[in-house]
Design a protein around this nucleic acid. Sequence first.
DNA 1: CCGTATCCGACTTGATACTG
DNA 2: CAGTATCAAGTCGGATACGG
Lengths: 119, 119
Amino acid sequence: MDECCTVNLTVRYLTKKWTLLIILELFKGENYTRRFSELKDRLPEITAKVLSERLQELEAEGIVSKTVDASVVPIRSEYTLTESGIELMEVVRGIKYWALKWKIDNIPCGSQECKLCKL
Amino acid sequence: MDECCTVNLTVRYLTKKWTLLIILELFKGENYTRRFSELKDRLPEITAKVLSERLQELEAEGIVSKTVDASVVPIRSEYTLTESGIELMEVVRGIKYWALKWKIDNIPCGSQECKLCKL
DNA sequence: CCGTATCCGACTTGATACTG
DNA sequence: CAGTATCAAGTCGGATACGG
């Protein structure tokens, strides 16, 4: 599979755990931007370790860009969806529409808007 | 995360390794149907164990239906995409379009149609 | 505050072998 | 052909520690 096509490769990293949910959280931020701690707060069960790993992977793929303002204390770092990252939201929306159409009866938080888990 | 909403839960199992690629292979079969060995042949690096596990999960989710003809030797079993499964192709298409738009230069097999990996 | 590093246990996936 | 069993390897989660 190492020598396979782009689409296959793309499925591989987009479907890594947390990746799509991180993209969704960035999308919901002002200017498609969120800070590390904001992401961590909004994805309550992710660990700093995995969040850090995923953000680096997304940056390497050109899906997320990182800016650091070291002139302030404490340091302020922000992660922003790139143009390609924003377009990935179509994939997340596709999953959401499908889930709301076919799995709506399973919603434990009682809302199609998924307020509880901020989705 | 165990007590989270449907969309979140849906992302969780749709993004398990191989799941989307299995759905794609079924979609490409006649009548959205393929046999176990066909799937295995077309997903060259999947193991029988994982393929079996994923198909059972997809069946449990109502995405795939299974039919077995035990009257022939060897036994013939077929897996077919349900209506909801067919609609999941929109998600796969979304990923494919995105990949072809943003990652086209990385294609090692030299084809947008991904002939090498049957994608 | 924003991380990275490490260790470790748990869960997931992979490799191989082996049946009806 | 269509799987299952077993065991090894990889990935993820959780806690903790540490540095910019």
